[in-house]
């Protein structure tokens, strides 16, 4: 079963993020990050120069994963490419065996390590989804015919902790109309907020995978609370991480994530794990009995 069929099947899904490295040491990404999770996850999201840090591209890494029989989810942002390049990369992705595409607006360039570069944002997440849908109908965004149609399972992101959340729901509905068949969310730490969000989002009847970022430390949690949109790690988790001895931190972090995943499980169709350099995704999956 491929990812799209699994979405249809109603099965509880697990996806995990792999981040291309800054450089060309591809073994790190493929052998160390992705390979250990073979058979344990339903899809590998490959990030597109996350946080606007210049790195190896999502497209070739997705292709190499697909060659190994690991199901890639190609993340594509509107930050660095105009409409011509985005469409071309989507066609290239299809030819390289990539079927799942997650469309994002992308962070602003000043957040990353090339703050003085030119931000593009020719399209936005909604218009890019629409353009990708148009490609699958055999036309480019200007209506010109394509020789052969690509097929994509399109996805998008949503931030359940966004304030005002109605604004996210309006955009979510637009993304669905533009072709999104699944959603992955920003990290969830507060199940109550997520439950409220899902009550509203349920009406769309589109599978949602709840985001998990395992905590590395209390400092990381505090940093995210202060700086990252839509994230609010509750005080109790920050305390648990602060009180854990150094060698117990991974265990405590897993315990927190497992608790969250159990909660998420009853509310939506899957989880999306974003390790962000944390090396224990496999242990987390085992502990969740998802593995």
């Amino acid at each position: 079963m491929n990812f799209s069929e699994k979405l249809e099947s109603g099965k509880f899904l697990v996806t995990c993020e792999v981040a291309p490295i800054k450089g060309v040491n591809i073994a790190k990404v493929l052998d160390e990050e992705a390979e250990p999770l073979r058979g344990k996850v339903d899809g590998f999201n490959v990030t597109d120069m996350q946080s606007s840090v210049m790195r190896l591209g999502s497209l070739p890494v997705c292709h190499l994963l697909a060659q190994r029989g690991l199901e890639p989810i190609f993340q594509i942002t509107c930050r660095d490419r105009n409409g011509i390049a985005l469409q071309s990369d989507l066609l290239s992705a299809y030819v390289l065996g990539i079927r799942n595409v997650l469309v994002l607006t992308g962070d602003y360039v000043t957040l990353g390590d090339h703050p003085e570069t030119k931000p593009v944002f020719d399209l936005d997440s909604v218009s890019l989804l629409k353009v990708a849908s148009t490609l699958t109908e055999g036309k480019d965004m200007k209506g010109n015919e394509l020789d052969g149609k690509p097929e994509f399972c399109l996805g998008a992101v949503v931030n359940p902790g966004y304030d005002p959340v109605e604004l996210q729901l309006i955009k979510m509905e637009k993304k669905i109309r533009a072709g999104a068949k699944f959603f992955q969310t920003q990290a969830i730490y507060d199940l109550e907020t997520f439950e409220k969000f899902m009550k509203e989002a349920e009406k769309f009847k589109v599978p949602v995978l709840g985001g998990i970022i395992p905590l590395k430390s209390a400092g990381m949690a505090k940093y995210m609370n202060e700086h990252i949109a839509g994230i609010s790690v509750p005080e109790k988790y920050i305390r648990m991480m602060a009180e854990a001895k150094k060698e117990e931190r991974v265990k405590t972090s897993i315990q927190i994530s497992v608790e969250l995943i159990r909660g998420i499980k009853s509310l939506c169709r899957g989880v999306h794990i974003m390790p962000m350099g944390w090396k224990h995704a496999l242990e987390l999956l085992a502990a969740t009995e998802l593995a």
Partner: peptide
């Protein structure tokens, strides 16, 4: 078409 996810 609406905000990015970065509003804080």
């Amino acid at each position: 078409n609406g905000p990015c996810g970065g509003t804080k």
